[in-house]
């Protein structure tokens, strides 16, 4: 309805997309409503819970706190970008099911992307580092134990280019 709409070009999960949005529209709403990527969930709209976490140019972002217009020219990865076929799970997703790291599943996409960011940057994080890295995401179902176990397993099983832990610190 609003006459003031802007065109935004961005790359989402490897595909070029163009959307027309109100300047006030969040990236989360744009992903969900304009691009039908409903795997990104909105649970607090205040940046407190992390459910809407996506990667923007490789860094985790609360998509409820970012305007879609700010994503102009950005590379966005949502949960659908990790693996969209339930038969072909990413090692991180596979570790989540094997460690019962999800129950209702509402917070799960945000956790997956927060964990993805951690493991893409680091090999061999210990339990404390994992818990700290995930402390920006809220889960009300699991008590986090399965999530932490899943991240540890994925760290071992995900074949990736990430360099190992810097020597001397551990």
């Amino acid at each position: 309805m609003s006459p003031d709409r802007r065109e935004v070009s961005l790359r989402v999960n490897g595909a070029d997309r163009r959307v027309t949005v109100e300047p006030r529209q969040s990236l989360a709403d744009t992903l969900r409503e304009d691009l039908s990527l409903t795997g990104t969930h909105v649970a607090c709209e205040q940046g407190a819970c992390g459910a809407c976490t996506v990667l923007v140019d490789g860094a985790s972002v609360r998509s409820c706190l970012m305007f879609a217009v700010q994503a102009e020219g950005c590379e966005v990865t949502t949960v659908e970008g990790l693996a969209s076929d339930p038969e072909e799970l990413h090692p991180l997703q596979r570790a989540f099911t094997e460690n019962h790291a999800l129950q209702c599943g509402f917070c799960t996409p945000g956790f997956l992307l927060a964990a993805y960011e951690l493991l893409a940057a680091r090999r061999g994080p210990d339990e404390r580092e994992i818990r700290t890295a995930l402390a920006g995401n809220l889960c009300r179902c699991t008590g986090y134990q399965g999530i932490v176990a899943a991240v540890r397993q994925a760290d071992e099983q995900w074949e990736r280019d990430t360099p190992g832990p810097s020597s001397g610190e551990r």
Binding site: R32, L37, T38, G39, T40, H41, V42, T78, V79, E80, L82, A83, S84, D85, P86, E87, L89, Q93, F96, T97, L102, G105, F106, T108, P109, L112
Partner: peptide, 13 residues
């Protein structure tokens, strides 16, 4: 799990 893990869950919203 697999469905929920790939963002294919279908919640009320």
């Amino acid at each position: 799990d697999p469905r929920l893990l790939v963002g294919a869950g279908r919640y009320l919203a």
